[in-house]
């Protein structure tokens, strides 16, 4: 069959046409469902809008309201503290379990399934479970604390155990515990990253006299550092967007004393309880900027610490 050769310009135009034809469903979806609403939210952030009446242009008023609103600053603080606690702890915990599950031990498949199992439980169910586990009167954790160091415990130190969700100090650690419950996905990512580290590197290091810690520090960590960076950044984004657990625990009040008023929870409350859609849109854009800055910062700092095999240089 004779092949018809098209002129170069026509060929590229035809290729471009096919490209746009095939990518058009995505472009349509992105423009209509992502870019459009994003820009729409930017517009709404400069308006007073209560859903019932048409938006009224108010300029920067919503941003001004937020900067003078102590609950806004509190919600930012709550999310920042939660992120600072849950992201590093989550990485360390998941990596630790992934390393354990990367050993050659009997019933490895069973262990891997068991450790992954909690992450398939929906957050709502897991949170309800933790409301019970952390109940100061009936919860199993406080039961053990009382049994060991309570006023009548084995070592009677008079410690009764925290009030968890009812105590402004303990409420974020309680939410952090819930977040650790869902470590399965990142554990799986680390496990695959660990399995991707060439064994030759470990053998060479062992020949050079490196012990377990040195192999871990100088071989494992640098080799999985891109994955660590990925989970670190997605962890920051995810924890700043925490909503479900807080909603289940406090129903949107942020109680006690606004100590569990997560940023996105307050955004939701403003939008769908207080019907201050403009203020909520401003909050959404501020969150976008905060996450963008943190991500850029993380990427900038990571240049010193993350090793990419495909690139020259890079050190750990």
């Amino acid at each position: 069959m004779a092949v018809r050769i098209l002129p170069k310009g026509r060929l590229s135009r035809r290729e471009a046409l096919w490209f746009w034809l095939f990518i058009s469903p995505w472009v349509f979806g992105y423009v209509v469902f992502t870019l459009g609403p994003t820009l729409g939210a930017l517009y709404l952030s400069f308006t007073h809008y209560d859903v019932i009446n048409p938006p009224r242009w108010v300029g920067l008023q919503n941003y001004g309201i937020l900067f003078h609103d102590f609950v806004f600053w509190q919600s930012l603080k709550v999310s920042a503290i939660y992120t600072a606690l849950s992201v590093p702890l989550g990485i360390v915990f998941s990596l630790f379990i992934a390393i354990l599950l990367n050993q050659k031990v009997p019933f490895l498949g069973v262990f891997r399934t068991l450790f992954f199992l909690p992450s398939v439980i929906p957050f709502v169910a897991a949170t309800l479970l933790f409301i019970w586990i952390l109940n100061p009167a009936f919860g199993i954790i406080d039961f053990f604390i009382r049994a060991f160091v309570g006023p009548n415990g084995l070592i009677p130190l008079g410690i009764d155990g925290p009030q968890w969700f009812q105590d402004p100090f303990w409420v974020i650690p309680a939410f952090t515990l819930i977040s650790l419950w869902g470590f399965g996905s990142s554990m799986l990512i680390y496990l695959s990253a660990l399995q991707g580290v060439p064994t030759a590197l470990y053998e060479a290091a062992t020949i050079d006299g490196a012990g377990y810690w040195k192999r871990f520090w100088h071989v494992t960590l640098p080799m999985i550092s891109p994955v660590l960076l990925f989970t670190f950044i997605t962890g920051i984004i995810g924890s700043f967007q925490t909503f479900t657990q807080a909603w289940v625990v406090n129903g949107g009040t942020g109680s006690p004393a606004y100590a569990s008023m997560f940023y996105v929870l307050y955004l939701f409350v403003n939008a769908f309880r207080n019907f201050a859609i403009g203020t909520a849109a401003a909050q959404a854009w501020i969150l976008f900027i905060v996450i963008l800055v943190l991500t850029i910062l993380a990427l900038w700092v990571s240049r010193r610490y993350v090793y990419y095999e495909s690139e020259e240089g890079g050190a750990f």
Binding site: Q163, Q166, D167, P168, N250, G252, T253, G254, S255, P256, A257, Y258, M261, V269, R273, N274
Partner: peptide
């Protein structure tokens, strides 16, 4: 008017008060 916003203030103050 806007009782729900006031309720958010009360919940946040009542809860730690009644559990402390």
């Amino acid at each position: 008017v806007k009782w729900d916003e006031l309720n958010q203030i009360w919940s946040n103050n009542f809860d730690p008060f009644f559990s402390g």
